[in-house]
Each structure stands twice: as structure tokens, then as C-alpha cells.
Design a protein around this nucleic acid. Structure first.
Length: 431
RNA sequence: UGCGGGAUAGCUCAACGGUAGAGUGCCCGGCUGUUAACCGGAGAGUUGCAGGUUCGAAUCCUGCUCCCGCAGCCA
């Protein structure tokens, strides 16, 4: 009697007859011998169908099965050095569940436009499966680390009444006659939640109606945002470096096979352990001007600046204390230099840019009121947020980590769109 | 949104003013150890859309649509 098995644990079934259900990835026809590259969702394995070992109808099915047809196979597991992965199934039976017709994605090269139009099928390919598997581990590492370090998950709303940082980059929708916006960040709500739990995080999709067309931007992306009561900027950086290191090291440990398949050189990733280098905005400006990537003090960094800075270090680098004018209205002032904000960005190596933005939020009512006015924000929409400075305000800090940027960096991808199953990019809402 | 590149067979591309091509996939045939197998055969086109120049346009010109890259915005 055949045992139900999965490919990922097939080594436990050597010598046994097993039953597998899945899809045909590819096939090599050798006449009276068929090699089937078979996938069940947990992995792929070679199935060998000899004409003399199976009933005639099973051999006929193996001979005419097409790429990505769903099918079931029964056979004996054996170790064979000639098989990719070292194991193969000597089939005793084979049948087609559904015969696929003209599967569009072939083992040869395709253009990115074609692949994105067929993203619902492209995700089956080994490379895309590897990236999405890494993503799953990154997400789990994020949750596990935060849950085990005193953070409580508190979900924040997706439909919001107003902007965190101005309405120009928000998707507007109709909320029974009132304008509503898709969230850009859960941070302001996190600042409310810390008074209930001390340390919290939210984790979900985020939407930016920016006409960004670069390898570092998605219209819809996932962000995890921890927020901590009684934490200053230094504490924020300390948490960030522990957090990012834990994510990277766990992914290296659990997804070595996928990273190798992706061709990722993991040498630099192994360096990602605390402490990360810290430079001030002032120092960064000096370095950039000295190294021929000119920038005026007071301007925010562009992608070329971030790349040039990150290239100088063997692990992610903190840039802290940006001019207040570069950063959001809720940032705390540097008490020693009020023109600076207690903000910090974490720049990933190898040109992947900013993977974290964050810092210390202001606890001062009068500064927040002034900033809301300076930024021309509708004060009545922020009354609840101002309340947080009236009823038990504390020094607090937090940050947002972009999941796709982190996955793209760890995988060595050249574009964020492969780091999410169904990317939303400028001009692409299908599939 | 700005600058640059592009759209030709299902797919990836060539042809750059003179009969529309290759590789690959699909289909048919052969092969008991293939790893993007190999060998033989066959089919496959409104050259993105609309107009213009020309004896003749995939090729030159104009407009439009869509895609890609870089930048800005940011995670």
C-alpha cells in the first residue's frame, strides 16, 4: 500500500512505495523512458517512468503529459546519484488530473512585461518560489523576534480619515460620502497603543499614491512598525540593529538552499550582526562632498547618496539627526541643536537603500501644534493625536521596516517587484 | 512628471528603403539515464494603433497607446 508522502521529506521513504500529488514542472522524453520533473508544493523530484514498469495507460499518460499539468504518481523512492537532489521515484503508476494546454512560461528566457502579465503562473517557477519562501521566513522572523522581545501586536486601520504626512500621496476612497484614505503608516495609532502596552507593533500593507517608477518602490508594500514607550533615539537604534540582525541571520540559517539557488553571495549578509556603524547627517554630508557626490546641507539624500554612503560599510549603517526640514512633523527636536530632528534611517549595503526610517517622536504638545501648523495639516484631524501629549506623554521612539526592500536585499534581487507575490507598480494592477 | 530606450511568429530576438528571418516552444516521428537532453519533420506573421512621405515602408516622418531603465517621492 502506497504511503502519502511529501517531497521535502522524501529521504525518510527510501525503499517505500509512496503516493505524490502535484504538478509536472518539465519532462524529458527518452522513448520508452520518461523523466518527469515533478513538484508537489514542498519541493521537486525526478520521477522515472519505464514503459515496462507501468500499465500501458499510465505510460501513455506520462508520454503525453504537458508542462504544468496536475498529476498524481505512485512509485518507489530510491536514492540515485544521477537524479537531481539525489532521490527519485521509480513510478508504478501515473495519471493526469488535468492536462494543461500551451503553458505560456517556458524554461527559456522571457521579458519582464510578459512575466508580470503572467505573474499568477510565474510564481510557480523555482526562482520565484525561492524568493517567496525567503519572504515567508523574513515575515516569520519579524513576528517571532518582536513577540519574544516584549512587543504586542496591535493592528492599525487601513482606512483612515487623514494623512500621516499630508494627503498628496494617499489613495482616496469614498467612505459613505466622506473622503477616506488608504493607510500610509500605522505609526500614529501605534503611538496611542504604547500607552496601553508599552511596546507594540503593527504589520500590514501600506499604500503610496506616488508615481514612483524605480526598482526600490511599490505602490502597495508591507511594513512592520514597532513603537516603544520610554525609548530614546539611542535605544531605537539598538533595537533596530538587533532586530535586523535577527531577521538576516535566521533567514541565512533556514533558507540557505533558496539563497544558493538565487545565486546570492551571502558573505556580506554574514556580517550583519550588531553593532551597526552610526554616522550623523552632518558627517554624511561631509563624506559625500569629499567623495564627489555633492549635496547641500539641508537636502535629503537621493538614491545615489544612499548608495555611496552604504558602500563604505560592510553592514547596514545608521544615519541619524537629519535636519528637521527633511523629516516628518512628529519628529522630536535635538535638544542641543533644534534645527536637527532625532531621526534615524538605516541604509542597507549594496545599493538597496533605506530599509528603515524612524526615530524619536516628540512628546511636547506645543512643538507638535507648531509643526502641524507649519506643515499646513488639518488640526481637527489630529486632535486625538494631540491628546496623546495631554494625557501621559512620554519620550518614545519607533521605526518602520519595509518588508520588500528587506527581502530584495537578502535575496539580491534587482527589483522589489519580485519580493511580493502580486506586485502593485505604477500602471500595473493585473493580475 | 522629466530624460533615455523599446514594441516584428506563443516566447526571446534579427532584418534598418527592395520577396518577413533565426533560436526556442507547440504538433508529428525516433531513442532505457535525461538534467535548458539529442536527432529528423511540419506548422507558425494585420511588423503596437492611426495617418503621412515614397514606384516601393518592419525600416523614414507625425500623433497616439503601452512597456522598460534612470531620477524625484519614500519603506
Amino acid at each position: 500500500m502506497a504511503e502519502q508522502a511529501t517531497i521535502s521529506t522524501i529521504d525518510r521513504f527510501v525503499g517505500h512505495e509512496v503516493h505524490l500529488r502535484g504538478w509536472l514542472q518539465s519532462r524529458t522524453d527518452k522513448g520508452r523512458l520518461q523523466f518527469l520533473n515533478f513538484r508537489d508544493g514542498t519541493g521537486t523530484i525526478q520521477v522515472v517512468v519505464f514503459q515496462k514498469n507501468v500499465p500501458p495507460e499510465a505510460f501513455e499518460a506520462a508520454r503525453r503529459v504537458t508542462q504544468e499539468s496536475s498529476c498524481e504518481v505512485t512509485g518507489t523512492v530510491r536514492a540515485d546519484p544521477r537524479a537531481p537532489g539525489g532521490y527519485e521515484i521509480d513510478a508504478s503508476s501515473f495519471h493526469i488530473v488535468q492536462l494543461a494546454q500551451d503553458y505560456p512560461i517556458t524554461p527559456k528566457e522571457h521579458g519582464i512585461d510578459f512575466l508580470l502579465d503572467h505573474r499568477h503562473l510565474w510564481i510557480r517557477s523555482p526562482r520565484q518560489r525561492s524568493v517567496l519562501a525567503v519572504r515567508a521566513t523574513v515575515v516569520d522572523a519579524i513576528r517571532t523576534w518582536l513577540n519574544s522581545h516584549g512587543f504586542t501586536l496591535v493592528d492599525t486601520p487601513i482606512l483612515t480619515p487623514a494623512a500621516c504626512e499630508g494627503t498628496t500621496t494617499l489613495f482616496e476612497t469614498d467612505y459613505f460620502g466622506e473622503p477616506a484614505y488608504l493607510t500610509q503608516s500605522g505609526q500614529l495609532y501605534n503611538e496611542a497603543n504604547i500607552a496601553a502596552f508599552g511596546k507594540v507593533y503593527c504589520f500590514g500593507p501600506t499604500f503610496r499614491a506616488e508615481k514612483s517608477k524605480t526598482r526600490r518602490h511599490l505602490i502597495e508594500f508591507w511594513m512592520v512598525e514597532p513603537e516603544m514607550a520610554y525609548a530614546d533615539l539611542e535605544e531605537c537604534m539598538r533595537v533596530e540593529e538587533e532586530f535586523v540582525s535577527a531577521i538576516v541571520q535566521r533567514t541565512l540559517a533556514e533558507r540557505a538552499r533558496e539563497l544558493e539557488f538565487l545565486g546570492r553571495d551571502t558573505t556580506l549578509l554574514r556580517n550583519v550582526v550588531p553593532p551597526f556603524p552610526r554616522i550623523t547627517y552632518d558627517e554624511a554630508v561631509e563624506i559625500l562632498n569629499r567623495e564627489g557626490v555633492p549635496i547641500t546641507w539641508g537636502d535629503d539624500f537621493g538614491a545615489p547618496h544612499e548608495t555611496a554612503l552604504a558602500q563604505r560599510f560592510d553592514r547596514p549603517v545608521f544615519v541619524h539627526r537629519y535636519p528637521a526640514q527633511c523629516k516628518a512633523f512628529y519628529m522630536e527636536e535635538d535638544p542641543e541643536r533644534p534645527e536637527l530632528s532625532l531621526s534615524v534611517d538605516l541604509l542597507a549595503p549594496e545599493g538597496y537603500g533605506e530599509i528603515i526610517g524612524g526615530g524619536q517622536r516628540t512628546a511636547r504638545l506645543e512643538l507638535l501644534e507648531r509643526r502641524i501648523a507649519e506643515h499646513g495639516l488639518p488640526r481637527q484631524a489630529f486632535e486625538w493625536y494631540l491628546d496623546l501629549r495631554r494625557y501621559g506623554a512620554v519620550p518614545h521612539s519607533g521605526f518602520g521596516l519595509g518588508v520588500e526592500r528587506t527581502v530584495a536585499w537578502i535575496c539580491g534581487l534587482d527589483h522589489l517587484r519580485e519580493a511580493i507575490a502580486f506586485p502593485r507598480t505604477l500602471g500595473r494592477l493585473y493580475p
